[in-house]
């Protein structure tokens, strides 16, 4: 009885080992594949020749807005005769920057402030131009950012139109004159973050309290602002709800919130004159409002594909004849 039991367990163990072996071989084969990837090495010419010479591979982060911008880059380059392919939805910043470094992608749409702080933890720059200037020093060798776009996706303080008119508030600096107590609807960490309650006090001299709503400027935060349970709400600038509810996004003259302009981060080897010119044309045309409109198309009832949204944007802007 005991013996048989042991035998069964042995055979189970063996089977487990075999399975593990198969997995290991599979993994090896896979990793062999990836290291044999011609796009992976530093000089793309020496590879096996698959993947045409100099083709630009555009990657994107795993959220719709970034994928749409990646699609715009891709289609704009293709329309101008640059061989281009796309690898969307790679993941978070760690994942796609690693992909950029190992050469499996060449170009990715980025946000300037977060990108700077990724490579330089102590960066203090916060205005668009300062952040952009800081980037050229902070980026690893072999990579560069092309022109920054006016389009930004960052935290922002929003008020209702009624509130804005009542107190004539258009900027964070105007808040000092508001007589009623101010509540901000935002994630709980807003109580500590430098761009949150403490920054409001130290930079603009405005005292506010936090109503913690853990949905990152999502529907519950929007509802709280509409209902007047908060006077201010932290919402990302490209969120459709800002437009749909006619919220007023307060200006930030002292740059309390770090700039997050859209920038193309590219492998210098692929940044030919043609590529640079095409991407910079796109960059010059892209606005925050465009991003909102495209996010509406992506998240609303239509649920259009990123590819389709990018196509429509390019058609409407008519950038390349």
């Amino acid at each position: 009885m005991m013996k048989r039991k042991r035998e069964t367990s042995m055979s189970i163990k063996k089977r487990g080992l075999i399975a593990a072996g198969i997995l290991a071989v599979g993994a090896l084969a896979l990793s062999a594949c990836s290291s044999g990837n011609p796009l992976d090495s530093n000089d793309s010419g020496s590879g096996s020749g698959s993947g045409s010479n100099g083709a630009v591979i555009v990657g994107s982060a795993a959220f719709p807005e970034n994928e749409i911008i990646a699609q715009i880059y891709t289609q704009a380059l293709q329309a101008n005769g640059v061989k281009t392919s796309i690898k969307p939805n790679i993941g978070q910043r760690d994942a796609y920057l690693a992909a950029l470094k190992d050469g499996s992608i060449d170009l990715v749409p980025e946000y300037s402030g977060n990108l700077l702080q990724y490579y330089d933890k102590d960066a203090t720059a916060s205005s668009s131009d300062d952040v952009y200037a800081g980037l050229s020093d902070a980026l690893p060798k072999g990579f560069e950012v092309l022109d920054q776009s006016k389009a930004e996706d960052k935290d922002s303080y929003n008020v209702t139109q009624a509130f804005s008119q009542k107190y004539n508030v258009k900027s964070l600096a105007d808040l000092k004159t508001v007589s009623e107590p101010l509540k901000v609807g935002a994630n709980p960490e807003f109580a500590q973050r430098p761009y949150g309650i403490p920054g409001l006090k130290s930079v603009y001299g405005v005292t506010a309290t936090l109503l913690p709503i853990s949905d990152s400027g999502g529907p519950n935060t929007v509802k709280a602002l509409v209902d007047g349970q908060v006077q201010l709400a932290d919402i990302y600038t490209t969120t459709p709800a800002i437009k749909q509810n006619n919220f007023v996004t307060l200006a930030d003259p002292e740059h309390l919130i770090v700039a997050q302009n859209v920038v193309p981060l590219i492998n210098k080897k692929k940044a030919s004159e043609r590529v640079t010119q095409v991407l910079n044309t796109v960059q010059a045309a892209l606005t925050t409002n465009d991003l909102i409109e495209m996010n509406i198309k992506s998240s609303g009832d239509a649920k259009e594909s990123a590819e389709q949204i990018a196509k429509e944007w390019l058609a409407s802007k008519n950038l390349f004849d």
């Binding site: 609807g185 109580a191 109503l211 913690p212 853990s214």
Partner: peptide
């Protein structure tokens, strides 16, 4: 439920 602005012990977790 402290995902919404409420008190209770959930505050410690969400904050």
């Amino acid at each position: 439920a402290a995902i919404l602005p409420l008190g209770g012990l959930g505050r410690f977790l969400y904050d």
